[in-house]
Nucleic acid binder design. Structure first.
Lengths: 375, 375
DNA sequence: TTGTATGCGTTATCAT
DNA sequence: ATGATAACGCATACAA
């Protein structure tokens, strides 16, 4: 695979100031409830009641007067003031381990949608993969009176999330659970998904497996997937003799991964070697390693990777993936939270969503001939 | 290219409630400034002064008493209350046309970082590519007293952003400018980048060019790139005879794109045809079309695509890309905004950042032999 | 049914 | 240098 690294920088940064001064100008301050009251010739309390208890306790005549005043001034209550008074802000804190991770973004998307529909806004805090900042994030967010949390973090700092719960804020954990934390938890069915991936490889004839994961540490999803992989090996050690191992790949250790792949083929001998990549990031590393080694997916090494991405169909012969229902995960997480914000307080739930296996060329030992190249 | 579409669903959604009730429990309310005052034996005003004007007007004895009280109670001021009083919330509204777009996410990432460092939090509003909701977004955000806006939207609804400015909130536009809106604007140097892409193709020997873009409509970045492409054709019509055209691709019209590519090769005749894809989304569509047609990048059709992605190196022979400095764009946008939030009011700026050309196989007419396939 | 008055947690103005 | 007090915009307990 050719990968020219020649780079060229062009152009210069040009700053082109326009002539017009756009200083923040004559800013008509937003109308307050007092303005509405004055315009309608009623008291602030009445306006407030109209807004909050529209139906109850209101003479139709006055109601309509308030209504027109509100419309005339295009009055919108200040959520800040409401929050101060009510203790609820209609804000939801979303803290994410790494916005760069496509999985996180996909979840974010689902969650944001559900929240918006329910009239909540999202405050975003990105950890940049720095687990130490988890506590910081939660504190910053609580200080803004967020009504609840959606947490997709490392979960290293068990105290951090617990602190949130201690403030009485409902919490829902996504993808990664926190040690000893009793909170709603929504995630992929990791055990089932790993089994799905591994057994697919076995069905396709791959016999020596390698599970490649980011450093497992104590990230729950990684732990679970790794454990499931070994469980699979034990279960299935009977009929077709399947063996396997785990390799922890880190971003700065490309060499290690290359060696692990070489060792894999060595161990496989005459048998076909197959790889289960534990997420999209790892999949990409494996793809890079294969390119460095000049190996081809499918024939030489099988691959099933967690996380379906837009590019999965187009890398090599197409990447077989385990597609997570990311949108559902995000939406479900938000729904759990919203339910608690409505006052319901069911016991902590675990919701595990199923994955889909999407079969492509990377798990097919017999590649078709390449296309002719003519239209 | 093989693309088995067989799918299999496995597992079931299992809900596994734990026994422990985790109802929001004994929530010790956050300490207020009054609590601190009481603990230190001083007045609220003194505590407030200590917090805000630490150095001025404070007897060291009292200052330290307050300091210990604050520490003892681990007091943190309520930003909501502060916002109500000051009119500033230390919140920044980020509205994004589409969180799914990798470019938007990359920008988001840079902006979030810069804001966090400056002590600002981000309120996220995703339009889901629905331009009509732009006004809605801005209103929701202003109602939360955000101090300013970073807008990466279609810019169709000119009034929407203008409304924000009218509220006296500084606005910075990213990537897409708004009709007649005088605000800070940061984006890629589109003209230069298109020239870079097109001239690279020409250098490599491609002579019949196709510019593929999402529907241009009035999205400024698309308009600019398309215009630059045609300008390039006019300029360079002299020495090597280069001709070209534009195709607008929409998500639901795969057929149209296929036909456009066929027409491209037709027009090219003996000459080499080349494609400039105007962003990552379009690049992916072109990749998909090429797969459907069974054509190969480089030899048969050249490609330079806007937006460097993690997968660019691994699709086909590697995709030649125009890499946007997304992180810089985000950070610069945030910095512009933060500067205005500090009270500075320079005239509206335009900051155009340069791109990098990353050359890979898709713009190379002479592909090297495929690797041997043995370690 | 409606109005008055109070407080949410701060900061700022005025005294002292 | 410090303390009482009002006000930010709103919701509610209470009075009418």
């Amino acid at each position: 695979m050719l990968k020219l690294v020649s780079r060229r920088v062009h152009g210069a940064c040009l700053a082109m100031p326009t002539s017009a001064l756009l200083t923040a100008t004559a800013t008509a301050p937003r109308p307050t409830i007092a303005d509405v009251a004055r315009a309608a010739g009623v008291s602030k309390a009445t306006v407030s009641r109209f807004l909050n208890h529209r139906d109850k306790l209101l003479s139709p005549d006055i109601a309509s007067r308030v209504e027109v005043a509100v419309a005339a001034l295009s009055y919108v209550p200040s959520p800040m003031a409401q929050a101060l008074k009510r203790g609820r802000s209609r804000l939801i804190g979303l803290v994410v381990a790494d916005v760069t991770n496509p999985f996180s973004v996909a979840v974010l998307r689902g969650a944001e949608k559900a929240c918006q529909e329910a009239g909540y806004l999202l405050m975003l805090y990105n950890l940049g993969n720095n687990g130490a900042r988890e506590r910081e994030a939660i504190e910053a967010l609580t200080s803004y009176q967020v009504d609840g949390f959606i947490l997709n973090t490392l979960g290293r700092d068990a105290g951090a999330a617990a602190a949130a719960a201690r403030h009485g804020k409902p919490v829902v954990l996504v993808d990664r659970r926190h040690q000893g934390m009793q909170a709603d938890f929504v995630s992929l069915d990791n055990a089932g998904s790993v089994r799905l991936a591994a057994s697919h490889l076995v069905e396709r004839g791959y016999r020596e497996l390698l599970f490649v994961s980011e450093p497992v540490r104590d990230v729950s999803s990684r732990v679970e997937r790794e454990a499931a992989f070994h469980a699979f090996l034990l279960e299935s050690s009977s009929s077709p003799a399947v063996t396997g191992a785990t390799f922890e790949s880190s971003a700065d250790d490309a060499d290690g991964l290359d060696q692990a792949l070489r060792a894999l083929r060595q161990r496989a001998g005459q048998r076909l070697p197959g790889i289960v990549a534990s997420n999209a990031v790892v999949t990409l590393r494996v793809v890079a390693a294969m390119a460095r080694l000049g190996w081809r997916f499918g024939e030489q090494v099988g691959l099933v990777g967690f996380d379906e991405t837009e590019w999965s169909p187009y890398v090599g012969p197409g990447l077989t993936t385990i597609a997570q229902p990311t949108d559902d995960i995000g939406r479900t997480a938000a729904d759990c939270l919203l339910e608690r914000l409505r006052g319901l307080a069911p016991p902590a739930r675990q919701i595990l969503l199923p994955s889909q296996l999407i079969v492509r060329g990377s798990s097919s030992p017999h590649q078709p001939d390449p296309p002719s190249g003519q239209a």
